[in-house]
Design a binder for these strands. Structure first.
Ligand code: FES
Ligand code: FES
Lengths: 153, 153
DNA sequence: GCAAATAGTACAATTTTAGTCCTCTTTACC
DNA sequence: GGTAAAGAGGACTAAAATTGTACTATTTGC
């Protein structure tokens, strides 16, 4: 299914909520009730994002979190990388020894190429885009070109 | 990490091996020794691919498997879909009820857009491409346009 | 009929992921 | 200075998904 983890999904929900008011400092509890996610989960996500410098944290009473940059400068790719590590689709992008003859195997280079393409696609969507009304920048005509033979349940 | 499953990886290794001689009928055992993957694993993968009509199977003595189409007509996207189901990156692409207010949530549509972009990227790589020497069709200049701020170990 | 080979299904073990909790440190405010 | 609010960090449990394997049935060539 080629999916991101739930935690990553949450991270985007939470940051999208923060993007609604980029200057404001939100406590984890506030974000929890706003997003309807469990407080410990929200806290965990925010901590991870803080370590990657995508959000700023303020400790102490009346502390909280704030986006470290403007929503337009935070991409989905960055969020995914922060939560899951580098985008690489195969084991063999990292290790080797899976394939027939490692030395001869052409697949590896191609996987890296594919990963870059995916990364590029994910880099084009920013948090700002995500907060816009859904079908905003409709590239609908373009989409018709790829008629999904593979449906979507 | 946004990765495909190992089984999917194997599927591509196996089909790439078959692409080396598209007309030939390989037994699962042959493919196993050629790819250095365990026989039961190779068998499982081939069965799944058969159900999606990406490979043809021939039962009985001297039976085996063969690609159902030419390598140029089988894309990585098709292989991934065959192994993992439709490409959709989030839960919320399928279910709903995760986000603040489902009705208002702008994310869902954007996720679908992203998934389509990824699918398009994966559709551009065929099995034929995969069997070519690694850096074959270098779209390198194009890649430079997206300077990865997020590195890649 | 027999042997080779796939189909299909079911299962156990492993590995990941999710989710929670607890303790420590920092800071605002009285 | 004391107290309470809030985050940092890590450890731990439980649940889910993935892997890998085994077994039985069916098909086909000789
Ligand atoms: S399949 Fe990844 S290096 Fe060969
Ligand atoms: S986050 Fe997916 S629908 Fe809102």
């Amino acid at each position: 299914m080629l999916r991101i983890s739930k935690l990553t999904d949450y991270a985007i929900v939470v940051t999208a909520a923060m993007a609604g008011d980029p200057k404001r400092i939100f406590s984890a509890a506030e974000l929890s009730s706003e997003t309807h996610l469990e407080p410990p989960t929200v806290a965990k996500v925010l901590k991870m994002l803080t370590r990657s410098d995508l959000v700023q944290s303020f400790r102490g009473a009346s502390g909280g979190y704030r986006l470290a940059r403007t929503p337009a400068d935070i991409t989905v790719a960055q969020l995914i990388v922060a939560m899951e590590g580098p985008i690489g689709m195969t084991q063999c992008s990292v290790h080797q020894g899976l394939c027939s003859t490692e030395a001869v195997c052409a697949l590896r280079g191609h996987w890296q190429q594919i990963s870059r393409a995916v990364h590029a696609a994910l880099s084009e969507m920013t948090l700002l885009d995500m907060t816009r009304p859904t079908i905003t920048h409709t590239l609908v005509p373009e989409l018709k070109l790829h008629n999904q033979t593979t449906e979507s349940p």
